[in-house]
Amino acid sequence: MTHVVSESCIRCKYTDCVDVCPVDCFREGPNMLVIDPDECIDCAVCIPECPVNAIYAEEDLPADQLAFVKLNADLSRDPSWKSITKRKPALPDADEWKDKPGKISELVR
């Protein structure tokens, strides 16, 4: 099993989680982070760091977020999604988007 970044991250991209990751498994896209399942060691230290509760252990992922298992795997292999290892500021309008559901159409690949 691995950890998965879910829809809550879209248009927010808080990066608190990357500072605590011991294996640098996060990848950064234009408006979301994902976890590389081949790099994640399932340590769970990132989960409490996410201010929007976007990170789940795969087995705890809500049913409506299951597509994010494949999405994280696919996007983490996209060469344009680079490794991120240091915290950066969240997106400028992150606070406006953090509690909005149904953001998958907002994902920029």
Results as ranks from 00 to 15, higher is better:
Arg77Val: 02
Asp36Met: 04
Ser105Asp: 12
Pro51Met: 08
Ala54Tyr: 06
Val34Pro: 14
Cys25Met: 00
Val20Cys: 02
Tyr14Leu: 02
Lys103Asp: 02
Met32His: 05
Lys103Leu: 05
Phe68Glu: 02
Ala44Gln: 14
Ser80Phe: 09
Ser80Lys: 13
Trp97Ser: 01
Thr85His: 11
Arg87Phe: 07
Trp97His: 14
Met1Cys: 11
Asn31His: 09
Asp42Thr: 13
Cys17Ile: 04
Ile35His: 10
Pro79Ser: 09
Val5His: 05
Arg109Pro: 06
Trp81His: 14
Tyr56Met: 00
Val108Trp: 11
Ser80Thr: 06
Arg87Leu: 08
Val23Leu: 04
Asp38Ala: 03
Ala94Arg: 10
Gly102Lys: 03
Pro37Arg: 02
Asn72Val: 04
Arg77Ile: 04
Ala94Pro: 08
Lys82Leu: 12
Glu39Asn: 10
Leu71Ala: 03
Lys70His: 07
Ser83Met: 04
Asp78Met: 01
Glu28Thr: 07
Cys50Gly: 03
Cys21Arg: 09
Cys43Gly: 09
Phe68Lys: 01
Val108Asp: 03
Val23Trp: 06
Ser83Pro: 05
Arg11Val: 05
Ala63His: 00
Phe68Met: 13
Arg11Met: 15
Val45Gly: 10
Tyr14Ala: 09
Val18His: 11
Asp24Arg: 03
Pro22Tyr: 01
Glu39Ser: 14
Glu58Cys: 03
Val18Phe: 13
His3Lys: 15
Gln65Asn: 08
Asn31Gln: 11
Thr15Lys: 04
Asp95Trp: 00
Pro89Ser: 12
Val23Gly: 12
Met1Val: 14
Asn72Phe: 13
Lys70Ile: 03
Arg87Tyr: 04
Trp97Leu: 01
Asp16His: 15
Ile10Asn: 05
Asn53Gln: 00
Arg109Asp: 04
Glu59Gly: 15
Asp95Gln: 07
Glu39Thr: 15
Ala73Asp: 07
Asp93Val: 08
Glu49Ser: 06
Cys25Arg: 05
Ala67Glu: 13
Arg87Lys: 15
Leu107Ile: 08
Cys12Tyr: 05
Arg27Asn: 04
Ala54Val: 02
Ser80Arg: 02
Glu106Ala: 13
Pro48Phe: 07
Lys98Ala: 13
Cys12Ala: 12
Asp74Gln: 14
Ser6Arg: 00
Asp99Lys: 14
Lys88Tyr: 12
Leu75Trp: 07
Asn31Phe: 13
Val52Cys: 13
Val45Asp: 00
Phe26Met: 06
Ser76Trp: 06
Pro48Cys: 08
Thr15Ala: 06
Arg11Gln: 15
Asp60Thr: 10
Lys70Cys: 06
Asn31Leu: 07
Asp78His: 10
Ser6Lys: 02
Ser80Ile: 00
Glu106Asn: 07
Cys46Pro: 09
Pro48Asp: 09
Pro79Tyr: 08
Lys86Met: 11
Leu107Gly: 07
Pro89Trp: 13
Ser76Arg: 10
Ile10Gln: 04
Thr85Gly: 01
Ala94Lys: 09
Cys40Ser: 00
Met32Val: 05
Asp78Pro: 05
Asp36Ile: 02
